[in-house]
Design a protein around this nucleic acid. Structure first.
Length: 534
DNA sequence: GTAGGGTTAG
């Protein structure tokens, strides 16, 4: 009978003895430390550790450091680390991990070198974290050195190190083949490693190879689906992403994790698939998924891009915690909908909330100004960005300003700004000027922009097309014809306007000037020939 | 005695 007992019963027998062992052997303060879930709690236990003298024992300092890392307080973690006179591998590992979490992967590499200089022996955790830092930095050379050390030291790699190696090698196209070799050198089925290679392929645009690997996988877990769906979304294949999501819901035994929902929502956002997005929202509620900052942000973005900013705002208001990305999404959302005043209001709320704006927030704010024609507000925010927040304007910000001035018809100022740029204007800048010149019939500046564009993007038919439209509108038919001929003769690619509508959950795409829709005949009957000629 | 994939904004 005992052999038939389900696994959870067996675990139930073990659980009490395990926890009582901890309680007996560990001082209460350390038990508290394990229970901490936020910064305040860790800080309180930290104080108790200092008072009780327990912190003087090096292993306890390591545990405290670990707790600070778990609550992402890297600054506090590193001050604890600095006070440990002889950190052991555990302390090093946690600090290395903390530095990666704190977006300082280069510092974690330095710390790894220090660990080696201290004569300590790295373990599988060390390797996992260091390789992760290497992937983030695309530091294949350093990663390869780590790989060599693992082999030389004869360390037996666990699945995590194995998959991190693959992840590291696939962070650059050139070493993708090394990632394949590493996978092949391990004969047993390793889902973790295969998932890494799938994301690696997808990050390098090798969608076909990723799909092949995915299809041949025997044991797909939630992360396999998630990697594939996220990869499709990243490579602009939103239709495929949503198709795979639906397939997963229907045939797969694993249920979607948060990352899958987030990527699928991102695909909905790109397609404008509001019904699908709403369905995912309802599904998340149904399974009782906690609307985390990430999931909430993806929902807001989906609603905003699918034209339903009100629903997005509802989600935003309900979010208990909001990070910079969440604020960025809601501000860009209102910017897309032309509600500049709401953007300004939210910006003030954000600052009052103690969240510091970054350069992306200002791109959103400036584009809101541009769409609503608020030139003076745009100048004001630009000034504020530079002088109050110390953000160096990027080419994107200048692009917004040129667009802002150009749309408002202040072309002389736009040109002056372009001439004063600290860096070489890119095609976005000149494109914004050309677009504005087309609206305001400024042939001289339009010509100037066009000349630069032909140098920067000689193969972009779109630029020629825009210039052609400008000349045609200004009555210079001859030049316009010449440009059109140029596009045809050089076989230049022009992208056509795409629009999507969703009917009963099916996304239909329409390409400007084409008639390749499956229901074309019915549409044609209803609307006649006028439809094709836009 | 202990930590470890992937996801979101222009």
């Amino acid at each position: 009978m005992a052999a038939l007992a389900p696994p959870y019963l067996a675990n139930q027998n073990k659980l009490p003895s395990f926890s009582s062992k901890i309680l007996v052997r560990m001082p209460t303060t350390l038990v508290f430390l394990q229970m901490c879930s936020n910064f305040q709690e860790v800080r309180q236990v930290h104080a108790q550790l200092v008072v009780s003298g327990l912190l003087d024992r090096p292993p306890n300092a390591g545990r405290l450091l670990q707790s600070y890392v778990t609550v992402s307080q890297i600054y506090h973690a590193s001050s604890v680390f600095d006070r440990i006179c002889c950190p052991d591998v555990f302390a090093y590992n946690n600090m290395i991990r903390g530095l990666i979490l704190g977006k300082c992967p280069n510092n974690s590499l330095l710390l790894y070198n220090k660990l080696l200089l201290d004569g300590l022996k790295p373990d599988n955790y060390t390797y996992t974290f260091v390789l992760k830092a290497c992937s983030q930095l695309s530091a294949i050379f350093e990663g390869r050195q780590v790989h060599c050390r693992i082999v030389k030291a004869g360390t037996s790699m666990d699945t995590h190190v194995h998959s991190s190696l693959i992840h590291m090698y696939s962070s650059s196209t050139d070493s993708l083949v090394c990632a394949e070799q590493v996978l092949a050198s391990f004969p047993e089925e390793n889902t973790l490693a295969k998932n890494s290679l799938i994301s690696g392929y997808l990050s390098q645009g090798e969608v076909e190879k990723a799909r092949e690997m995915f299809d041949n996988m025997v044991e797909k877990d939630d992360a396999s689906w998630s990697a594939m769906i996220a990869g499709y979304t990243k490579n602009g294949m939103s239709v495929e992403a949503l198709g795979l999501f639906q397939k997963m819901m229907m045939i797969s035994e694993v249920s979607p994790n948060e990352a899958t929902l987030v990527s699928s929502l991102s695909a909905c956002a790109h397609l404008g698939a509001l019904d699908q997005g709403k369905w995912i929202h309802a599904y998340a509620d149904k399974i009782g998924a906690k609307i985390s900052v990430t999931l909430g942000t993806a929902l807001i973005d989906m609603y905003a891009k699918c034209g339903s900013i009100e629903h997005g705002y509802e989600v935003f208001k309900k979010m208990p915690q909001k990070d910079l990305v969440a604020w960025g999404v809601i501000i860009s959302g209102f910017a897309i909908h032309g509600q500049a005043e709401k953007c300004f209001e939210l910006f003030d709320d954000m600052v009052a909330n103690g969240t510091y704006p970054n350069e992306i927030i200002f791109v959103a704010i400036l584009s809101a100004c541009s769409h609503a024609g608020y030139v003076e507000m745009g100048y004001q925010y630009f000034y504020q960005m530079v002088h109050e927040y110390g953000i160096r304007p990027s080419i994107e910000h200048y692009g917004c300003m040129v667009d802002l001035l150009g749309r408002a018809g202040r072309l002389a100022e736009a040109e002056e700004l372009i001439m004063s740029l600290p860096e070489k204007p890119n095609s976005v800048i000149w494109g914004a000027l050309l677009g504005a010149c087309r609206i305001h019939n400024d042939l001289r500046r339009g010509n100037l922009a066009f000349k630069h564009l032909t140098e920067l993007e000689p193969m972009s038919g779109d630029r020629y097309k825009l210039a052609g439209l400008m000349f045609a509108k200004a009555g210079e038919k001859e030049t316009a014809t010449k440009i059109r001929k140029l596009i045809r003769e050089n076989d230049l690619e022009t992208t056509r306007g795409l629009s999507f509508i969703e009917i009963d959950g099916v996304v239909h795409d329409f390409e400007a000037g084409t008639i390749n829709h499956s229901k074309y005949n019915e549409i044609y009957k209803m609307w006649g020939e006028g439809l094709i000629d836009f």
